[in-house]
């Protein structure tokens, strides 16, 4: 797809992959990361299923199982790693100035 030369191109980081521009503005730097906890999680090994379970020690209140906590942490790390890769792509698109 051709890009206008004497104009500002607004695009996603994914769309900017492989491209280079004289000046690049990276927006949304302060947007907080949102972790969206899922009540049920399945690991890479499908036998590893994380769910909430009734806890007899706490009047059978639904409590996150250890597997769920672990899978959620793994998921969070994966998402963070992907965000880091995307940020790297965004910051390395600039030829002269990065703002």
């Amino acid at each position: 797809m051709p890009f206008a030369e004497n104009a500002v191109n607004i695009m996603t980081v994914h769309a900017a992959k492989g491209l280079e521009f004289p000046i690049v503005f990276v927006s949304d730097m302060v947007m907080p990361f949102k972790d969206r906890p899922s009540p049920i999680m399945i690991g890479d090994n499908p036998l590893m299923v994380g769910v909430k379970v009734p806890n007899p020690a706490d009047n059978f209140a639904m409590t996150e199982s250890a597997v769920l906590v672990m899978l959620r942490e793994l998921q969070r790390q994966k998402e963070r790693a992907e965000r880091k890769r995307l940020l790297y792509v965004a910051l390395t698109r600039a030829r002269d100035h990065l703002s």
Binding site: M29, V30, P32, F33, R80, K84
Partner: peptide
């Protein structure tokens, strides 16, 4: 630390 960063600017 990177792990505790809450936004991209904090990472930076």
């Amino acid at each position: 630390s990177f792990d505790l960063g809450r936004s991209r600017i904090e990472w930076l």
